[in-house]
Design a protein around this nucleic acid. Structure first.
Lengths: 117, 117
DNA sequence: CGTGATACGCAACCAAAGGTTGCTTCAATG
DNA sequence: CATTGAAGCAACCTTTGGTTGCGTATCACG
């Protein structure tokens, strides 16, 4: 069951552009709005807005250095988000498998009844 | 790394209302726009639109029975979506842990150099 | 059989979010 | 100190999640 509490985190990582930004920040250590926008199909301003969103939910933190603002991911927060993803995924998985097993059991029982008639 | 290919599936399950709808459909087997809207904080019409989205990406299928349209989840598709969630989550997890180990190693090395001075 | 209730579909409309362009501001560097 | 590179700000556009209102089809029952 989706806990429905941390929908903020979810919606933050729900956007594909933001996920790619997190990927980039992870693989390059840190980045600015400008540097990230160079590897993304959107403008610097769009990236800046996304960074603001990520910053608001604490998934990234900014450090101003001269005229540049460097962002890096907050490992703990991202780990929590990742755990949520895995949790929802595995929850669906297990429920689907339970349904599958149930269906197979019913199928078996039907077969037995048919052979008994 | 996010595969970036199945962004449709992602955006379909990215919406919190749609996730709850999938949860409901899973736990109750099937449902209509009306029945789902009764357990959700949105109107029937909103639910209908979400169902259309889920149907378009194949996560649910509809069966018309009289004046009712019953929807049920497509187990295979949802399993794929769940797998993607887990995959992205675990990918981030492992990358974060690699970074953490790296940081610890550097920390250890620094300590050693300090004690050698 | 027809009349009311029920489930749905369609259309117009609204607000928030992702995205763009254009311009200003601020710091580094020649 | 003039220029350039990075960031911020503001207006605007489009999509998307949501609503209300209304028309349509199907069932159920007197």
């Amino acid at each position: 069951m989706s806990t429905a509490v941390d929908d903020d985190l979810w919606s933050a990582i729900g956007d594909p552009t933001r996920r790619r930004m997190l990927d980039l920040l992870l693989s390059e250590g840190s980045g600015t709005a400008t540097s990230l926008s160079e590897r993304l199909p959107v403008t610097r301003q769009a990236v800046a807005k996304h960074l603001a969103v990520l910053d608001r939910v604490g998934l990234v933190h900014a450090a101003t250095a001269g005229r540049e603002r460097h962002f890096r991911v907050d490992a703990a927060r991202l780990a929590r988000a990742a755990a949520q993803l895995e949790q929802v995924g595995s929850s669906w998985d297990s429920r689907l498998q339970r349904i599958k097993r149930l269906a197979e059991t019913i199928e078996r029982q039907k077969q037995e009844t048919e052979t008994n008639e």
